[in-house]
Simulated scan of single mutants.
Amino acid sequence: MRSSEVLLDGLGRVADNVHAVLDGATSELLNKAPAPGANTIAWLVWHLTRVQDSHVADVAGADEVWVTGWWVDRFGLPFSPGEIGYGQSTDEAARVIVDDAGLLREYYDATHAVSVDYIGALTDCDLDRIVDRNWDPPVTLGVRLISVIDDDTQHIGQAAYVRGLLS
Score class of each variant (00 low, 15 high):
143 V>Q: 07
29 L>A: 13
90 T>N: 09
135 W>M: 11
127 L>S: 02
3 S>A: 13
18 V>E: 00
109 D>K: 06
53 D>F: 10
108 Y>N: 03
111 T>S: 08
36 P>G: 05
149 I>K: 01
126 D>I: 03
46 W>A: 03
63 D>V: 07
22 L>E: 01
30 L>F: 06
110 A>W: 02
86 Y>L: 14
136 D>A: 12
102 G>H: 07
149 I>W: 04
86 Y>T: 15
89 S>A: 10
27 S>I: 00
142 G>H: 03
80 S>L: 14
19 H>Q: 06
60 A>R: 10
12 G>F: 01
115 S>K: 01
71 W>A: 13
125 C>Q: 13
163 R>Y: 08
121 A>I: 00
22 L>C: 04
80 S>F: 11
63 D>W: 00
3 S>M: 10
89 S>L: 08
43 W>I: 03
38 A>Q: 12
80 S>E: 15
37 G>V: 05
91 D>H: 07
91 D>L: 13
45 V>S: 01
120 G>E: 00
101 A>D: 06
90 T>F: 09
122 L>D: 01
29 L>T: 13
68 T>D: 11
35 A>K: 12
28 E>D: 15
78 P>D: 15
61 G>N: 10
89 S>C: 09
128 D>M: 08
94 A>V: 06
121 A>F: 03
11 L>I: 03
69 G>Y: 08
150 D>C: 04
133 R>Y: 06
74 R>Q: 15
47 H>V: 08
93 A>Y: 02
128 D>N: 12
68 T>N: 11
106 E>Y: 04
24 G>K: 02
10 G>C: 04
138 P>D: 09
105 R>T: 13
39 N>Y: 05
33 A>D: 11
161 Y>W: 13
67 V>N: 10
100 D>W: 04
8 L>H: 02
158 Q>T: 10
87 G>P: 06
132 D>V: 05
6 V>P: 00
131 V>L: 05
71 W>P: 03
127 L>M: 04
128 D>G: 07
65 V>Q: 08
133 R>L: 09
112 H>E: 01
118 Y>W: 07
82 G>N: 14
96 V>A: 03
9 D>T: 06
6 V>I: 11
37 G>E: 05
152 D>G: 07
97 I>E: 03
165 L>V: 13
26 T>R: 07
53 D>G: 11
94 A>G: 09
107 Y>C: 04
143 V>D: 04
166 L>V: 12
19 H>C: 02
59 V>H: 11
